[in-house]
Design a binder for these strands. Sequence first.
DNA 1: AGGCAGATGTCCT
DNA 2: GGACATCTGCCTC
Length: 210
Amino acid sequence: MDKEYFKKDGLELAKSILGKYLIRNYDGKTIVTKIVETESYMGINDKGAHVYGDKRSERTKPLYLEGGRIYVYLIYGMYYCLNISANKENVPECVLIRAVEPIKGIEEIAFNRFKKEYSDLTTYQRKNISNGPGKLCMALKIDKNLNAKSILDNELYISDFYYEDDKKVYSNDKIDIQTSKRINIDYAQEAKDYLWRFFIKDNKYVSAYK
DNA sequence: AGGCAGATGTCCT
DNA sequence: GGACATCTGCCTC
């Protein structure tokens, strides 16, 4: 992925990063996951968006930067959510990453989530290891420190391949995408019914919402 | 497998 | 003071 890739609009970006790899590097460790669920937030006219009504604030600053910036915010006082800004500068669209599938580094993920080895997790915990926006941030150790940084940098980036024993493994472009209404934005009036949630059909790690 | 309450900080009226 | 792009634990079925 290059800089230009992220300058498409928020709906295009949400669909095109499905199936791509979200890769996290920290403390010399690498975690590889696959993006399986996203939502679009379409800027100043979207009643579900943080920037609705052109609400510029300290919090929403990264959204106004050019596409490809990380926007991390705190929700319900205890959880982080990861977004990628879309489109060009001053067009504050973004994509919320709602769920990922673990590919590499499962032991690291299990520890970040439950402070236990993967083999000690219950089937319930295994199923719920990264199938939600707050859960995936815990799984990948994502917090405010990454806010406003580029999603092309080594700490956290999106790619269409990862390395398995020095061999490139590419993502599959042929993905069956399903759509639905966005989750938990009942306040957004007519915008709550827009079909701006996208997920990979039948993927085990999509969040619990139908 | 599903419903409900509680946790808890930051942004907004 | 209230809302919030959520998760967990505890309860019932």
